[in-house]
Write a protein that binds this DNA or RNA. Structure first.
Lengths: 184, 184
DNA sequence: GTCTATACCGCGATAGAC
DNA sequence: GTCTATCGCGGTATAGAC
């Protein structure tokens, strides 16, 4: 049952919801048909569990960087430059392309919540940077937070399109260079 | 045949490659089975034509903004703020999530080329801004170009996740505010 | 060129045995 | 709880008539 969820997470990441069949999940989890349908009502319910799990993991991984000591830019930079499996893309952001996920409120909710959390967490950090004089007052925390999150998500897209991590790294460095710096 | 391509473009945009069946295309194009397979060897070939077409259209639409008069920031801002069907996402960027597209060199090529073009075109504009003294020398044109493209692609992702254009608009404004300004 | 018929396969789920 | 059998449906393609 744990294996079913983990396998579903992997397959959703790689192939999305539409591209993932119950049979493929069972194969990957080394579980039988009966087992899967005993624990979960169907594909959607299993996907829901997997997406929620992935959302929690994303938050935990991000929070690790956010809690690092240092200035706001330090923490944001840590987060942006964290080691990532860039060419696999974002497990959550990916689902945004899936009409069956976006069309089902149960599946969509964890996706929406994950990004809502991420943006508000980033906004807190930017706001703190403003309070401490690291950033000018005119910098809008919500806007900047959205920009940071977007660069990551878009970086994945560009990298996958190019088949190379380069565009991702360029985009991230480009953003870091644009962030206001008190020290320069 | 023209209708087949157009319908495929629409369906790929909405449902992706995996989620689009030949039958659905035929329905949308009001064409028969035989007609489709007469003109195209199969789903992949038709998709290739549709993706190439969408790539050309994306380039044409972007070039329209890039050719506007004004400073580099003006032109970039025009491009970023152009009216878009944000919640539908990017027709090309979307395909990046599709393993069957990324796995087929024929289908992947037009996706890769479109973004390669976009980034190099944006880099030219940034470079011109540097030459004209609008941007400082230390601004890296390729990095900044990647950042701009990423904000758009990521903005779509965030907007779709939220079910609202707001995050897209925040991300775009956040980026514009981060761009160096000679006039302020 | 376009139509209809046909084929084979895998999807997603249910049923009932063990 | 897990297994196997079975089901109806749609995906993707081919064949041959018109």
């Amino acid at each position: 049952m744990e294996r079913l969820i983990r396998s579903t997470q992997e397959l959703l990441w790689e192939r999305g919801y539409v591209g993932t069949s119950p049979k493929a999940i069972q194969r990957a989890a080394d579980a039988g048909q009966g087992s899967m349908y005993h624990h979960f009502a169907g594909k959607a319910e299993l996907a829901k569990a997997a997406i929620e799990r992935s959302g929690l993991e994303l938050r935990a991984a991000a929070e690790e960087q956010f809690e690092e000591p240092g200035t706001a830019t330090d923490r944001i930079t840590h987060y942006l430059e964290r080691e990532r499996d860039v060419l696999r893309g974002c497990r959550i952001g990916r689902l945004t392309a899936d009409p069956d996920v976006m069309g089902d409120p149960e599946l969509r909710a964890p996706v929406a919540e994950t990004f809502a959390w991420l943006r508000s967490r980033l906004a807190e950090i930017v706001a703190e940077g403003k309070r401490k004089g690291e950033y000018p007052d005119r910098l809008d925390a919500e806007q900047t937070a959205a920009t940071i999150a977007a660069v990551l998500q878009g970086g994945y897209v560009l990298a996958r399109a190019a088949g190379s991590v380069e565009p991702f790294e360029l985009a991230v460095q480009g953003l870091i260079n644009l962030l206001p710096e008190a020290t320069k």
